Amino acid sequence: MKIGDDFHGVIDEYLADCKAEGGTPQISYKGTFKVQVTLELHRDLALAAEEKGESLNKVVGEALREYLHS
């Protein structure tokens, strides 16, 4: 038996348990995703972040948190 077989066996068992219990398998998120915006919005966000001494990632992350909690 190969090491990969153990891994695949555990995954198959997890998926079978989810199906039997009527649940959905958890999805793993890595914290990055691509967002496409207009050139103007990208520029404006980058300039605003720079003025505040923050990264564009931080500004976008804060805006998304505010959107979720408003």
Results as ranks from 00 to 15, higher is better:
28 S>Q: 06
11 I>E: 07
4 G>S: 15
49 A>H: 00
21 E>L: 14
50 E>W: 01
40 E>G: 00
49 A>F: 00
31 G>R: 08
37 V>M: 14
36 Q>H: 13
24 T>V: 15
7 F>Q: 11
40 E>R: 07
41 L>R: 08
33 F>E: 09
60 V>Q: 01
54 E>S: 08
59 V>G: 00
15 L>Y: 11
26 Q>V: 06
37 V>H: 03
3 I>F: 07
26 Q>K: 14
47 L>Y: 04
54 E>C: 05
54 E>M: 14
36 Q>L: 14
24 T>C: 11
61 G>A: 10
12 D>T: 08
30 K>D: 08
16 A>I: 04
66 E>H: 09
22 G>Y: 13
47 L>C: 03
1 M>W: 09
62 E>V: 11
70 S>E: 11
60 V>L: 09
29 Y>M: 10
11 I>D: 01
38 T>G: 15
47 L>T: 05
12 D>K: 09
26 Q>A: 13
25 P>Y: 08
22 G>P: 04
59 V>Q: 00
49 A>Y: 02
56 L>E: 01
9 G>E: 01
19 K>C: 04
32 T>Y: 06
44 D>Y: 02
26 Q>F: 04
52 K>P: 00
62 E>K: 11
14 Y>T: 04
69 H>W: 03
39 L>Q: 09
60 V>F: 01
40 E>C: 01
60 V>A: 04
50 E>K: 13
53 G>F: 07
33 F>H: 02
50 E>T: 10
50 E>A: 15
22 G>Q: 13
20 A>V: 03
32 T>M: 04
25 P>R: 03
17 D>T: 10
42 H>N: 11
28 S>I: 13
44 D>E: 11
38 T>Q: 07
64 L>H: 04
14 Y>I: 09
1 M>F: 05
46 A>Q: 04
19 K>E: 15
47 L>N: 08
25 P>I: 07
36 Q>I: 09
